[in-house]
């Protein structure tokens, strides 16, 4: 019986596996293999095992700068998305008393997620540009006399775009976790004389921990893997790990790009598994 259940489960799971093997496992293997090869300089690879690509990655001062810059973006984005996402979810779950209204407001937050990220990023141009809405209104009020240059095509703009796109990835899992908190727990705590701070500290935050972990996985892995937002919003001024990788690809340096990619993959895997140690994602999602 157990064997039959196994066969049936594998039959059900086969479409997923048939996608994951050729389009995830094999490509990653190809990248790993390519990282040990030599480039012929014309987009081809010479099958000659070498560690030179890794030596180049670890030897370059640039690598350190790229990781520092990407980590800075990841950390800032994580702090802002968590800060905003947590309080938005808290507001919707605990402050909006009408449940229908809460669901409506929740949907209002999620709708932009279904539209193009690229377009949402471009849409900051008329606001943050040198002659944009923010600058012209600040000058109109008389707060500043020259347009602020740091608003667009800067690290500031990159973080704004990330937070704009990714806060939803925090809101949804945290909202889910908070919505499952039994309101009677909080009433009991109130009856026992807990302050609102204590309720937050000992009930709401610990019970939202899984949602926070899930949201963090999404936000961090997306920022670590991004190159588009950095490229467009920094105006080419800043770089990330993947944007440097993209430049390598543009000049057909596959092996060195592959080595950088493998190092990045390992970094992402380590980070994600550290987060996963704090939460059983599968149990959390299936609950």
């Amino acid at each position: 019986m157990a064997a039959r259940a196994n066969t049936l489960a594998w039959f059900y799971i086969s479409p997923l596996v048939l996608v994951l093997v050729p389009f995830f496992v094999l490509p990653i293997l190809v990248v790993v293999i390519a990282s040990f090869m030599e480039s012929d300089g014309f987009g081809g690879m010479i099958p000659h095992l070498t560690l030179a690509n890794y030596a180049a990655v670890f030897g370059a001062e640039l690598t350190l700068r790229l990781y520092a810059s990407t980590m800075k973006f990841a950390l800032l984005t994580w702090i802002f998305t968590l800060g905003i996402g947590f309080w938005i979810a808290y507001f919707l779950v605990f402050h909006v008393r009408n449940q229908l209204l809460a669901i409506g407001l929740f949907l209002l937050c999620t709708i932009p997620f279904w539209t193009s990220n690229i377009i949402r990023m471009i849409s900051w141009i008329p606001l943050l540009g040198k002659n944009g809405l923010v600058n012209s209104s600040l000058m109109g009020v008389g707060l500043i006399h020259q347009p602020l240059e740091f608003l667009l095509f800067s690290d500031f703009a990159v973080v704004v775009a990330y937070v704009h796109q990714l806060t939803i990835f925090m809101i949804v899992p945290i909202f889910n976790a908070m919505a499952r908190i039994d309101k009677r727990t909080i009433e009991a705590a109130l009856d026992a004389g807990a302050s609102r701070y204590e309720i937050m500290r000992y009930i709401v935050v610990p019970l939202s921990k899984n949602g926070i972990a899930l949201g963090s996985i999404f936000v961090l892995s997306i920022v670590m893997g991004d190159f588009f937002v950095v490229k467009v919003m920094s105006g080419g001024g800043s770089a990330s790990i993947v944007s440097a990788l993209f430049e390598d690809i543009a000049v057909l340096q596959y092996p060195s790009a592959a080595a950088a990619a493998v190092v990045l993959l390992l970094a992402v895997v380590v980070m994600i598994s550290l987060i996963l140690r704090t939460v059983d994602v599968r149990k959390e999602i299936a609950r």
Partner: peptide, 14 residues
Amino acid sequence: VAPGLVLGIGIGLL
């Protein structure tokens, strides 16, 4: 969670 561009490169090379 794999970076999209990395996966794209892998598939392209494959």
